[in-house]
């Protein structure tokens, strides 16, 4: 896999700092950049693509300099060996599906080769029969597949996904996740996803980069971010979080109704039980805090429950700051 290095990359729009000085090294195959809208994640992605010029810093793909404010280098997007998939698909409406995918190969490959590559890409996304259609005649999911085919056709080392799934409905989204992962895997490329959907981020990546207000606040494998968030913002953004009165984080799956170890019990008053299909999420008030935990059966509101917190599963934010 390629090593992507960001040294002090930043972007200002006039007086507004969209992305603050960022130092990052990305080596994983599947990476997500997660954050709420306006946090600068799309700007960061566009800087990787070369669509937005950073105000300062240095960007390297392995040892190749893509951008450097000192050396005044800025490699064009089309010369970076990347593909990109957009939220609104960005398929050129006047061209057929075939021409959309073949566009990136013009001047590089012969006509016969182009045909072969395009049909191969279309086959990977299961749309061989739609080659002659215009994008406007396809459904949203099909258009997104064409966009993916266009990206893999140029044989990129890196594919960037800008909120690529948020225009699709939830069933289609889950299906596309699988497809994207397996296709990127087969062509042995790297992928960076920008998203505001934390389940998507956890499900799709080996490495997550969490951004807030133009800054990277944490990065690492999803498990690490889930269990050891650096602050309350991250803890609340990823999964369900329960808090004790001294800022200790307890994830719901570590709260039990039976004692599994020597941990002390706390009492809670049930507020409500929500059915999630495979289990119930129980909301209970514990020492003035609202806790959530799971059980296989509902609990009546106002009933009192004894809760045991599994040992060595809590994570104190307070400790880390010391």
């Amino acid at each position: 896999m390629m090593r992507i290095t960001l040294n002090g990359i930043e972007k200002r729009f006039g007086a507004v700092q969209a992305v603050g000085q960022t130092n990052l090294t990305i080596t994983d195959q599947f990476v997500t950049i997660l954050g709420q809208s306006g946090c600068g994640k799309t700007t960061l992605l566009k800087m990787l693509a070369g669509l937005t010029e950073p105000s300062a810093g240095e960007l390297l793909f392995d040892d190749q300099v893509m951008f450097s404010s000192k050396e005044k280098t800025n490699v064009k997007p089309s010369k970076r060996g990347i593909g990109m998939v957009f939220q609104d698909f960005g398929l050129w409406p006047h061209m057929s599906v075939f021409d959309n995918i073949a566009f990136g190969l013009r001047g590089e490959k012969s006509k016969a080769e182009r045909r072969h590559i395009v049909m191969d890409a279309l086959q990977k996304v299961q749309l061989e029969d739609k080659a002659k259609r215009k994008p406007g005649e396809l459904s949203g999911g099909q258009q997104q597949r064409v966009a993916l085919a266009r990206a893999i056709a140029v044989d990129p080392r890196l594919i960037l996904f800008d909120e690529a799934l948020s225009a699709l409905d939830s069933i289609l989204r889950e299906q596309m996740r699988e497809e994207i992962l397996s296709i990127v895997q087969t062509i042995n490329a790297q992928a960076i996803f920008v998203t505001h959907d934390q389940t998507e981020a956890m499900a799709m990546s080996d490495c997550m980069i969490i951004m807030e207000a133009g800054k990277v606040i944490q990065s690492g494998p999803p498990e690490q971010i889930y269990h050891e968030p650096t602050d309350a913002y991250v803890a609340n953004l990823i999964g369900r979080a329960n808090w004790t009165d001294n800022d200790v984080l307890i994830r719901p799956e570590y709260i039990h109704l039976q004692s599994k170890s020597a941990g002390p019990a706390v009492t809670g008053i049930v507020r409500k039980s929500l059915f999630e299909g495979d289990r119930y999420v129980i909301h209970a008030e514990v020492k003035g805090q609202l806790w959530k935990f799971y059980d296989s059966r509902p609990h009546k509101a106002h009933s009192i429950v004894k809760l045991y917190v599994q040992e060595n599963t809590t994570h104190s934010l307070y400790k880390q700051e010391v």
């Binding site: 566009k46 669509l51 997007p77 089309s78 990109m84 609104d88 050129w92």
Partner: peptide, 13 residues
Amino acid sequence: GSFQDAADIYGRS
């Protein structure tokens, strides 16, 4: 918007 972005990425000139 993304039409131009896509052209910048995939287009040769």
